[in-house]
Structure formats: C-alpha cells, structure tokens
Amino acid sequence: MTDERVPDIKSTRFRLTDYALIAMMILPILACIVLKVLFTPASEGVHIAGALVFAEFEAPLMNAYISESQVNSWAVMISIFGLCLYLTHGLTAKAVCKRQLAAEWIVEKCEKLVRDNMGGFFAEWGPFIAAIMGLSAFSSLICLLGLFSPTGDVNVTFGWAILVFILIMHFKFRGGLWNYFIGLFKPIPVFAPMNLIGEFATPVSMAFRHYGNILSGAVISALIGSALTGLSNSLLGWLPSVLGDMPLLRVGLPAILSIYFDVFSGVMQAFIFAMLTMLNISGAVPWDDWNKKRERRGKEALSAN
C-alpha cells in the first residue's frame, strides 16, 4: 500500500465535498420540519393524533396515502446515508481523518455483536443488522426535533417486521418444505394450530412492541404537557398579560421525562428490535435437516459423476 493516494484534507475540493455531505445530512430533516409546519392544522389544546397525511391518491383496493411517517423515514434514510458517506470520506490505511476512527468503531462493534449473537454462518450480516438498528434509532430520535417519529406509526414497524418474517421463513424452509410442515405437528398433532399461530405471532409481537413503546412515550409526553399547561394557567394566570398566557410550568419537567421516554426508550427499542431480528433469524435455521439435505445432494452429485 505504498503508492496509496493520501487525500489532502486541507484542499478545497475535500472541504466542499464535506460540506455537501453535511448538507445531505441536515437538509432532509429541515425539509420535514418545513412540511410539518405547512401542513399542521391550527388547533387548540391537547393534540394527540397519528401521522399527518400530505397527499392521497385513488387506488384499486383502498386509497393510497403519502403520510408524514413515510416522508420522515425517507428523510432519515437519506440522512443516515449522508452520515455514512461523511464518516467514510477520505478513508485511508493510515487514518488521516479522526472520523475514520468513529467509522471503524461502529463497524467493529456491529460485527462483534452479530458474530456473538448469530454465530459464524451469519458473520456477514453486520450491515443488515446495523441498518435496521440505525434506521430504528434515528427514526425514534427524530421526535426530539418536534417531528413525528415514523416508529410511532404501526405501518412502519409492521413493514420492518414483515421483512424479518420473510427472512425467518426463508431460513426455516432451508431444511425442506416437508420437514417444516412435519415440524408444525410436533410434539403432538394437537399443537398444530398453536404452532401455526406462534409462527405469525413473531412479527406481530415485534411490530407491536416497538410501536407501543414509542407511541406510549409520545402519548404520555403530550398528556403531561397539556396537564402542566392547565396547571400554569390556573396558578400563574394572574401575572401580567404576556407572562400569564405563557405556560411557564412547562419549562423543564417535560425535558427531563423526555430523556427516558424519547432517548432511552427509542435507543433501547432499536437495540431490542435488532437483537430479536438476530436471534429469530439465527434460531430459524434447521441445522440437522439442512445438513442431511446437503449430504444427500452431495451423494447424488457424486453418483451422477
């Protein structure tokens, strides 16, 4: 690696690219805030509602929507993409940029987590798990900016859970369709309906767990905010005009609660969603059946030769 071209991190071109990538991180979120401000209806009092609907189309089965959760999750995806490009910009063997250390730390931690929890066969699944975890964590944290968290919409988390369900099914069928079908009737045939429900309960519980945690945090925050507004109106309403109208008691306490409900809960649910994805996928592989199938195929190939 002696002839490697070391990028000049002081050059104008490098800096301009950096600024472009930072803009790529920030601009989608700003656009979301502008959209939210433009579309929010003027309302009084406590306002607990789902995602705003920006546009609606005619479609055969039911009307198709473009809602806030879709727009926000695409903004988060573009933003994370910009962050990844920014962290890997100017990547060299000798680490001239400090950000390379952060990128290496993330990759190493993620690969270690995947190898510890999924085993050697799935050692290359790091990017997928990191993508799920990053998207989930940043989608939940976006509510710190006053935007609607996409994970507070059941459609978003259900989409992710269905993706995981398809992967689980893909690995369960590796041992052969017939073996999977027989496996439903174990240990006794009476258990077949329960086993079948258990198969479908995995994505449902994953989706509802994530959605319920984020939504409950949002609902409790809104309730506490409205309660403090009412309290300060009744207690401090005698103050002169502008001060009396302001909900002064709302300063402080909601921010402290938000550390638990928004930051801790959001990051924790992202970790748990990724963890359950790893455990479910790696636990779905029927190793015995699959190895038998591979041995049989190998023998057939040998006898054919």
């Binding site: 519980s205 509802f208 767990r209 959605y211 319920g212 945690n213 939504l215 409950s216 609902v219 924790m268 649910q269 970790f271 748990i272 963890m275 359950l276």
Partner: peptide
Amino acid sequence: MIMGCAIAETTGLYGLIVAI
C-alpha cells in the same frame, strides 16, 4: 435481563394498544 424485560413487556403493550 434487558432482553427478557423487553419480551415480558409485550403483554402489557398489547393492553396499552387496546386502550389507545
């Protein structure tokens, strides 16, 4: 423990979703 807590929480969250 945190994994187990998260899984044990599921039934409570089902109740919460029904309430909401």
